[in-house]
Design a protein around this nucleic acid. Structure first.
Lengths: 344, 344
DNA sequence: TTACGCAATTCAATCGATTGAACCAATGCG
DNA sequence: CGCATTGGTTCAATCGATTGAATTGCGTAA
């Protein structure tokens, strides 16, 4: 069955040189239409397959782009993946995919490997706790201008483009909505200190509370993983306290879904007995029971902008790094409602 | 800032030849320990980065594996992605990722590109409607032994390994569970004719109905997309019929979640007024309101087995293709319960 | 001393595509 | 008719790592 045909195979068949074939297959106008067609026809019948290793070796670009996520179980992140894969495929680039799973080591390994593969750029949702050197260190000093775009999470003092959501605005919108409905006893569920997202949302929450003249204490803020289980067990715990909150703001829709599950088991009606809000507005938020009030993070726009920025960098754009902050939108559904009248 | 160092750079620094460096960096015993260490130290300080294009060109293997999904919005599929990425990374292989989004064209484009990239193998969840030639055609005749493993969905008469769930068994388990609870008026929601999964589940449902002496007519089976919206609107429609079902079996958890949402709005208590079951048992099934009875498809085992098979093929295994059928498990939760007493 | 074996290293060809320079023939123009 | 142009194609070097064969140097057995 012979080996895979190469430019040489075609060249011999058609009776021209390898150079002519190379040029013809890329529609270079230097080759006459007649021979170009003969060459292309021959390539087709021989079943020629372009060898990107050879091309990449010579040209130094493999036509790939690397993308690294760290939480596949959170549909919010896979939304990014879909948006970006589509855009890169349109641009004729393949995607090298990595899943760091919140591990700095895995992230570092991925970055090294994707450089070995000659990826032209990297889009990264940095692992929690990533610092500047975790990204630059692996890429080494020979890659000073290597295009990197961070999305969703910010890492300060990095020389990279970043496209993130306006988390402060999102929390503000949620708080104002709930405050306007009469709520005064708030709880914040989820997040922590490790990601910019968690920090920003929590800070905004605290500021909103202060601005409204409400106090923030140990009972107000509860850190934890972004999981259904966390939301579920935390609500259980809150119900045990003397004065349960009337509004529960969750760091992520995922946590809010867990809260809704616990509410259901306890016969609590979210939106009536208790208001629950999420964050991200993933697709499922419109179909939870009840439908979840959330903040729509524009993953499509963020993904698009990130692809654009990366594209520009790969094309040689050397302007100083940009920090794009994408405004989100409040989406009011049934899980939030007027504060219940205080019984006392 | 100089170019990226190559073997040559190191060779000159250390005072040996390129060959020696190449061998030393791969720990070849032909190079003495002393020089090997000198070489490796030099590589480290120079910040040498392995060039896989050059190596791949010479050796013909790029160290990548391609994986193509087609529905990122369904967490069921991203579970596979996570399992497999982890296994390939451990094996030192990067993953070329594609998202066919149920488009045959995109899938074909992906397969062509990944061959160009010299991927060593392919794991594919074939797009609905894929036929034998859609896979083989793009790979062309020079790749007869190219390793391909299909997961989740079967394509008949293909010369590839396949790892799929035992869908017939899963449906049987669900049906028996519901029948045992006294249900007699069933409805099947979702699927269609395009994927083996949909066909197998539906066929098993029909057979179970017949075996139980129940008739299947136009009102029993409703095809549709695997989306929350489909489940939601279909339940609305069913409620409008004269004699609504007491048990709704959904092709996928995703559809079931949509059904639960509609139930909630109508004040129907799933598990009491109506039994609802899903399929796949994705993570969220345990946290819906109420928690969803489903069939756990072992994405972990399927992903693992698929990786193993692909690994064996890449290592040269030429045994005839295998068809692995993984048994699922019934998971009973709160969305299913005894059939309500018929009011008539 | 010669020859041999062995370890360590080098030589040199190779993988397949790209590209700037060179070449050739035909045409146009003065 | 000679010279410049230009369209079409070829030449030849190049990218960086790999590898089977060849070479070198050295100790040791004959």
């Amino acid at each position: 069955m012979g080996r895979r045909p190469t430019l040489k195979t075609i060249a011999e068949e058609v009776g021209v040189t390898v150079s002519a074939v190379s040029l013809a297959l890329r529609d270079d106008p230097r080759i006459s239409v007649a021979t170009r067609e003969r060459i292309q026809r021959s390539a087709a019948t021989l079943g020629y397959v372009y060898n990107r290793h050879a091309a990449g070796l010579r040209r130094g670009d493999s036509g790939t782009v690397a993308v690294c996520l760290n939480d596949l179980s959170n549909p919010f992140f896979t939304e990014f993946l879909g948006h970006m894969e589509a855009r890169f495929r349109e641009a004729g680039r393949m995607m090298l995919f990595g899943h760091a799973n919140e591990s700095l080591d895995v992230q570092a390994q991925f970055i090294r490997q994707m450089v070995e593969h000659g990826a032209a750029g990297l889009i990264l949702i940095p692992v929690a706790g990533t610092r500047r050197d975790d990204i630059a260190g692996e890429r080494a000093r020979h890659l000073e201008n290597f295009p990197v775009v961070l999305i969703s999470r910010d890492v300060e003092q990095t020389p990279y483009d970043r496209v993130i959501n306006d988390d402060a605005l999102g929390v503000q919108l949620l708080f104002d909505h709930l405050y306007g409905l009469g709520h005064r006893r708030f709880v914040w569920l989820g997040g922590g200190k490790e990601t910019s997202t968690a920090r920003d949302r929590e800070r905004a929450f605290i500021e909103a509370m202060r601005a409204a003249g409400l106090s923030v204490d140990d009972e107000t803020i509860h850190h934890g993983p972004t999981s259904l289980a966390f939301g579920d067990t935390m609500l259980e715990r809150l119900l045990g306290t003397g004065e349960p909150p009337t509004a529960v703001l969750c760091f992520s829709d995922v946590i809010a879904f867990g809260v809704l599950a616990a509410c259901y088991r306890h016969g609590l009606r979210p939106g009536v007995d208790l208001s629950v809000t999420g964050f991200d507005d993933m697709g499922a938020a419109a179909y939870s029971s009840p439908a979840l009030t959330s903040v729509r993070v524009r993953t499509d726009r963020i993904g698009q902008r990130a692809s654009e920025l990366l594209g520009a960098r790969m094309a040689g754009d050397r302007r100083p790094p940009e920090r794009v902050v994408m405004p989100p939108e409040l989406v009011v559904r049934d899980s939030s409602g007027p504060a219940p009248v205080t019984r006392r």
